[in-house]
Amino acid sequence: MQDAKMVRMANQIADYFAAYPAERAEREVTNHLRAFWEPRMRRQLVEYVQAGGDGLHPLAVKAGRDLADPEEAPSASGTTR
């Protein structure tokens, strides 16, 4: 998918969860991406963040970093599952 579309989708998710307190928002964005995004899409986000993450919402950037490191990623049993 085009990076611009991926950025738009990730930012929309971040925009929603931004209403929650920071720690929960970070957890929920990552959990949402893990629950609903196919691995290719998650990989694209991770690589985009690693390349600078231009235009991404800070919560999406954080999620991209968490997803790059499965050891540190939030639990997959998040609220969206």
């Binding site: 998918m1 085009q2 579309k5 629950a35 995004w37 196919e38 691995p39 290719r40 899409m41």
Partner: peptide
């Protein structure tokens, strides 16, 4: 155990060749 592609994601993936 991993989620698959949604319809619009399938179309995007087709255009990029995967």
């Amino acid at each position: 155990a991993e989620p698959g592609l949604r319809i619009p994601n399938m179309i995007d993936a087709a255009i990029e060749g995967t």
